[in-house]
Amino acid sequence: MSAFPESAPSATSAASADVLRIARQVLHEEAAALHDVANALAATPDFERCVQAILQLKGRVVVTGIGKSAHVAGKIVATLNSTGTPALFMHAADAIHGDLGMIQPEDFVIAISKSGDTPEIKVLVPLLRRKGVPLAALVSRADSYLGQQATYILHAPVTKEACPNNLAPTTSTTAALALGDALAVCLLESRQFTAADFARLHPGGTLGKRLYLKVGDLSRQNQRPQVLEDAPLKEVLLEISGKRLGATAVLNTEGALAGIITDGDLRRMLGSFSDLESLRARDILTPRPATIDIDDFAAEALARMQQRNITQLVVTEAGGFAGFIHLHDLLREGLV
């Protein structure tokens, strides 16, 4: 006896379908649904009122749902937290088995449900009302049980799922997720949440490093090769090879930056001068080298290196020489 039902669809029939046509149809249907959601915002003041209520909130935003809506709720919570709005996820089924205790009097609840009439929601809503917390309903049907019981309606109208059977949550979850993003961005803009604020909440990974890592964080770990303008060629060679940064700064007698000599400059020099013994640093330096301030972001250093097709920048502090930052420093930090 076969372990699979005889009516199971065959892989061959799926493979022969017009996959690209189906994919484009799904994307077009979901894009059209998002257009409808955007238009629905103008039909009610609830979205703006909801934003204002959250801005004045002393507690946290608790987002709840069940099934696929619970996954959407989790993502919305993550987005809110990362953009300056403290938020918690509460599964609607777990709420009635103890998790309701996480909700405090100063919190704000957003319940996500396409139909607004699921059994778990109908059990949960009276308990939330008993707690006296504001409730926003992110629903497809504004006239549903959840919509009628909520303080605010975040309307995400969806007439049909992208699923051909109109069963699997597809368009409805996309609409709910997009409306949650719109809410988060409105809160972000209202709070004037900056890239620096974002960086403080995202210290890990490449994104965080691009937003907070400064040039000085890297250059201070390097040696500071430097010679005076009248340094002989041998001293220049020893300084570049000994400090292992492929270059040395050249300073004048007042200690100001006069230029830079790279190992490439040394190789080119060999074909240009016959009397190497008499050469001094001033004879082969490149004046006005590319520089970057010690307090600039490391990501800006990378951009300047790429623009000029070079591998190091002279680091300055208050206009004076402060060291070097090398492409290898940026590679090591994963910025490249």
Rank of each mutant, 00 (worst) to 15 (best):
F324M: 01
D295R: 13
R304F: 04
T311L: 00
D296V: 02
L302F: 05
T311S: 06
A301E: 07
A318F: 13
A301V: 04
R308G: 04
A322I: 04
G323L: 00
A318Y: 13
A298L: 08
A299T: 09
D296T: 03
I310P: 00
R304Q: 13
I292C: 07
R308N: 08
Q306N: 13
E317M: 10
E317N: 13
L302Q: 11
R304T: 09
I292L: 03
Q306P: 04
G319Y: 15
I325A: 06
R304C: 05
D295M: 13
I292W: 05
V314S: 03
A299Q: 12
I292V: 10
D296S: 12
H326F: 02
G320F: 06
T316G: 07
F297C: 10
R308L: 15
A303I: 09
G323D: 03
A298M: 08
F297D: 08
A322C: 05
V315T: 05
E300M: 10
Q312C: 12
F324N: 00
D295G: 10
A322W: 01
D295E: 15
A303M: 10
A298R: 09
M305G: 01
R308P: 02
N309P: 00
A322S: 10
V314W: 00
I294F: 11
H326L: 01
F324L: 02
I325R: 03
Q307C: 10
E317H: 14
A303E: 13
D293E: 14
F297R: 14
E317G: 13
